[in-house]
């Protein structure tokens, strides 16, 4: 069995700060492999441990931090990694990202399974897995919280707005994994040291025959919806009574209760 995992270096949105004019301080924000991507890597390694598989990771981007994503995946147990060298991967259009992953699938395959995170930590479109499934014309198991890989196929359970869906498909298939799917392993020191010796294959979009399209980004700025921001201290009992009284009065005059 062969499994391809796509993992993205993404910003930790919870730690993003803004300057006084509302521009994001992107360079000061920590970046790491997305939470869901990490769970996708974990699922691939578990499938390998259970059934035997060659596991391959791909990431898109040119910096040393991008190479670190591959090393992190190696440390978790992935066998082989491709880095698609391109600068400013943040401004690639989603169809370009999808085509790059599709070409890696075609040119370094055959693969039985492709794992993606259901959404990256920073842009979270969740559209890549359906795009890939349609481009490759193979089944999609979307938003999977619970995965069971068997010798001849997969079963996955997804929670959506209206209930739970169980998907069953034969290979090959594209699967997007949620960050609820598992608890990713923390690599041992030995695994981390070993990961440094595994080579990383470098390819360019030209090698893959992919025409690079960029989005036309004009501006990024802090987004806060105007809210009233009326705060009430409620430390002791009398403050609590007063705060609750004021709150109820306000909610009544807003007409929401």
């Amino acid at each position: 069995m062969r499994i391809l995992v796509a993992a993205k270096l993404s910003l930790d949105a919870g730690q993003l700060k803004f300057d006084s004019s509302g521009h994001p301080l992107i360079d000061a924000c920590p970046r790491r492999m997305g939470d869901a991507d990490k769970c996708a890597v974990e699922e691939a390694v578990r499938a390998k441990e259970k059934l035997g598989a060659e596991t391959v990771v791909v990431t898109i981007g040119g910096s040393a931090e991008h190479a670190r994503i591959i090393r992190d995946a190696y440390a978790m147990g992935i066998d082989k990694g491709y880095i698609v060298r391109i600068n400013e991967p943040e401004t690639l259009s989603l169809p370009t990202v999808a085509r790059i992953i599709a070409e890696i699938y075609r040119r370094t395959g055959p693969y039985d399974l492709v794992f993606l995170g259901v959404g990256s930590n920073d842009t979270h479109s969740s559209m890549l897995a359906p795009m890939l499934s349609s481009m490759l014309d193979i089944p999609l198991l979307p938003s999977i919280d619970k995965l069971d890989v068997k010798n001849d196929g997969v079963e996955g359970i997804a929670t959506m707005e209206d209930g739970s869906y169980t998907f069953r498909a034969r290979f090959p298939a594209v699967i997007s994994i949620t960050s609820e799917a598992n608890e990713p392993r923390i690599p041992t020191l030995r695994a981390i040291l070993k990961s440094k010796r595994i080579p990383i294959q470098e390819v360019s979009p030209e090698d893959l025959g992919v025409n690079v399209e960029r989005i036309r980004l004009e501006n990024v700025e802090r987004f806060i919806l105007p809210r009233r921001r009326i705060l009430m201290e409620a430390g002791d009992q009398s403050q609590i009574e007063e705060a609750v009284g004021k709150l109820l009065e306000a909610l009544r005059s807003e007409g929401v209760i």
């Binding site: 609590i240 306000a250 909610l251």
Partner: peptide, 17 residues
């Protein structure tokens, strides 16, 4: 920062009231 009304207090004391 994103609330219209905020009560700064222990939920175990505020909610019963």
């Amino acid at each position: 920062n994103e609330a219209d009304y905020g009560i700064i207090g222990d939920l175990y004391k505020v909610l019963p009231v």
